[in-house]
Amino acid sequence: MSGNGNAAATAEENSPKMRVIRVGTRKSQLARIQTDSVVATLKASYPGLQFEIIAMSTTGDKILDTALSKIGEKSLFTKELEHALEKNEVDLVVHSLKDLPTVLPPGFTIGAICKRENPHDAVVFHPKFVGKTLETLPEKSVVGTSSLRRAAQLQRKFPHLEFRSIRGNLNTRLRKLDEQQEFSAIILATAGLQRMGWHNRVGQILHPEECMYAVGQGALGVEVRAKDQDILDLVGVLHDPETLLRCIAERAFLRHLEGGCSVPVAVHTAMKDGQLYLTGGVWSLDGSDSIQETMQATIHVPAQHEDGPEDDPQLVGITARNIPRGPQLAAQNLGISLANLLLSKGAKNILDVARQLNDAH
């Protein structure tokens, strides 16, 4: 009898209710805020589980004197976190989706994509230029951005401005803007500013005609071990179906173009009346040469937790077992079709030249 009692006690200790789920994140304040929001949602869904947040620095956090596009290494903000995932030191990792490459290392998958916040870019102005827009900034004003995508589009749109690289986390960039006289304004992701509670610093939100956004911008991705079915089931509740389908289309477009950090590629997606609209573009580094096109596809946005595919093969690095396969494939095909259209119009040449120029500098 006593033996059975011990077995029952052991089973209770090993039951999922007692389990601590370890969540990996970057150390920056924004990353911690984003991770806290994901953990809060998981806690609400699984009140019996405990969650421990483990923060670590990544290569991208450490190399702050070089433009991201020049470092010449993929997975700048993800490699150390993936290493911890691989060694079973954490069970899942919360990322900004735009930091996750469209091809993940073997053994990993994006197990959830959370509801997207505003994906557009924002302009934050130096205190002396508050009330201005990019259009009304004085001639030769210097605007800071760490992104080739932003610089290429904005140089084309605002030729009277000069664009220079600015690195560091959000706090560091804002301090550089406010305390030094080098920059009249800087460009940042609206979602990051909003998550930090800095709505009052948003001086201008850039519309798609001015600057399309990065693939996955404004959404959070939760990376897990691809074979860890328990954790895949656990994080599945975080999937937002519309965000998922938009981001599958965007990531398929980028992957098929073979774009990345070192080339200016941008997108804009919208879901309306059962249609998914995808606009994508590529630019030369100075913005003088560009190709942009829009395509659409009829896609039914499923309700969360309709029964999805059981075999769960990944699409552009994403596993969404609780979302039907048909809409996911339709979104992926839309991204591939748009990429093929741009490639047929000469996108590869623009991107190759951009890559060579970026590598040469």
Results as ranks from 00 to 15, higher is better:
20 V>S: 15
23 V>A: 15
23 V>G: 02
23 V>E: 00
24 G>S: 06
24 G>M: 06
26 R>E: 00
27 K>S: 12
27 K>Q: 08
30 L>P: 00
30 L>R: 01
35 T>H: 00
35 T>F: 00
36 D>S: 12
37 S>V: 08
38 V>C: 09
38 V>Q: 03
40 A>L: 08
41 T>C: 10
42 L>C: 08
43 K>P: 03
43 K>E: 09
43 K>I: 12
44 A>Y: 13
47 P>R: 11
47 P>E: 01
47 P>F: 08
47 P>G: 08
56 M>F: 15
57 S>P: 07
58 T>Y: 00
58 T>P: 06
58 T>G: 01
60 G>N: 07
63 I>T: 00
63 I>D: 01
64 L>D: 07
64 L>Y: 14
65 D>L: 04
65 D>I: 08
66 T>H: 08
67 A>L: 09
67 A>E: 01
68 L>F: 05
70 K>P: 08
71 I>S: 10
71 I>M: 15
76 L>W: 09
78 T>D: 06
79 K>Y: 12
80 E>K: 09
81 L>G: 07
82 E>K: 07
82 E>I: 02
83 H>E: 13
83 H>F: 11
83 H>T: 12
84 A>K: 09
84 A>W: 06
84 A>Y: 08
85 L>W: 02
85 L>K: 03
86 E>K: 14
87 K>N: 14
88 N>F: 12
89 E>C: 08
89 E>Q: 14
90 V>F: 05
93 V>I: 14
94 V>D: 03
95 H>M: 06
96 S>A: 12
97 L>V: 12
98 K>M: 02
98 K>A: 04
98 K>P: 03
100 L>P: 04
104 L>T: 06
105 P>C: 05
105 P>K: 11
106 P>Y: 06
108 F>C: 09
109 T>S: 09
109 T>G: 00
111 G>A: 06
113 I>K: 02
119 P>T: 12
121 D>C: 10
121 D>G: 04
122 A>P: 05
123 V>T: 13
124 V>Q: 04
125 F>M: 11
129 F>Y: 14
131 G>D: 09
131 G>H: 13
132 K>N: 15
132 K>Y: 12
133 T>S: 10
136 T>N: 12
136 T>M: 13
137 L>Q: 05
137 L>M: 11
138 P>W: 05
141 S>L: 10
141 S>Q: 11
142 V>R: 12
145 T>F: 10
146 S>I: 09
147 S>C: 05
147 S>L: 00
148 L>V: 11
149 R>D: 04
150 R>E: 02
153 Q>Y: 12
154 L>N: 04
155 Q>R: 11
156 R>M: 14
158 F>G: 08
159 P>T: 09
160 H>E: 12
161 L>W: 07
161 L>F: 07
161 L>R: 04
162 E>S: 05
162 E>Y: 15
162 E>G: 09
163 F>Q: 10
165 S>Y: 10
165 S>C: 12
166 I>A: 08
166 I>W: 12
167 R>T: 12
167 R>N: 08
168 G>P: 03
168 G>T: 02
168 G>Y: 02
170 L>S: 07
172 T>I: 07
174 L>T: 08
177 L>E: 01
178 D>L: 10
178 D>A: 06
178 D>C: 13
179 E>F: 07
179 E>A: 14
180 Q>I: 03
180 Q>T: 10
187 I>E: 03
189 A>W: 00
189 A>D: 00
190 T>N: 15
192 G>M: 05
193 L>Q: 07
193 L>N: 06
195 R>S: 04
197 G>T: 04
197 G>S: 12
199 H>E: 10
199 H>K: 14
200 N>V: 06
205 I>D: 13
208 P>G: 13
209 E>T: 03
209 E>L: 05
210 E>Y: 06
212 M>V: 04
212 M>C: 03
213 Y>I: 03
214 A>T: 07
214 A>G: 08
217 Q>L: 03
220 L>Q: 01
220 L>N: 03
220 L>R: 03
220 L>I: 01
222 V>Y: 02
222 V>F: 02
223 E>K: 01
224 V>A: 09
226 A>V: 12
228 D>N: 14
228 D>Q: 15
229 Q>S: 03
230 D>W: 13
231 I>M: 13
232 L>G: 13
237 V>R: 10
239 H>S: 12
239 H>C: 09
240 D>L: 02
241 P>K: 01
242 E>Y: 00
242 E>Q: 10
245 L>P: 01
248 I>P: 02
249 A>I: 02
249 A>N: 00
250 E>I: 01
250 E>L: 02
251 R>H: 02
251 R>P: 05
252 A>D: 07
253 F>H: 05
253 F>A: 03
256 H>P: 05
256 H>K: 05
258 E>Y: 13
259 G>C: 09
261 C>V: 02
261 C>I: 00
262 S>I: 12
263 V>A: 15
264 P>A: 06
265 V>R: 00
265 V>F: 01
268 H>F: 13
269 T>F: 00
269 T>M: 05
269 T>I: 00
271 M>S: 12
271 M>Y: 15
272 K>Q: 09
273 D>I: 07
273 D>E: 12
276 L>G: 05
276 L>D: 03
279 T>S: 10
279 T>Y: 11
279 T>P: 05
280 G>W: 01
280 G>Q: 03
280 G>V: 08
280 G>C: 01
282 V>N: 03
283 W>S: 13
285 L>A: 13
289 D>E: 09
291 I>K: 13
292 Q>E: 15
292 Q>H: 14
293 E>C: 07
293 E>T: 03
295 M>T: 06
296 Q>D: 04
296 Q>G: 12
296 Q>P: 07
297 A>N: 00
297 A>S: 06
297 A>E: 05
300 H>M: 02
302 P>W: 11
306 E>R: 12
307 D>E: 07
307 D>T: 05
308 G>M: 03
310 E>W: 03
310 E>D: 06
311 D>M: 14
312 D>P: 04
312 D>N: 15
314 Q>D: 00
314 Q>F: 13
317 G>W: 12
318 I>W: 01
318 I>G: 07
321 R>M: 07
323 I>A: 03
325 R>Y: 07
325 R>G: 14
326 G>L: 03
327 P>H: 11
327 P>N: 01
327 P>Q: 14
327 P>T: 07
328 Q>N: 01
328 Q>L: 08
332 Q>S: 15
334 L>R: 00
335 G>Q: 06
337 S>G: 11
339 A>V: 10
340 N>F: 07
342 L>H: 15
343 L>R: 14
344 S>R: 15
344 S>A: 01
345 K>P: 00
347 A>P: 15
349 N>C: 05
352 D>N: 06
352 D>R: 10
356 Q>C: 02
359 D>E: 09
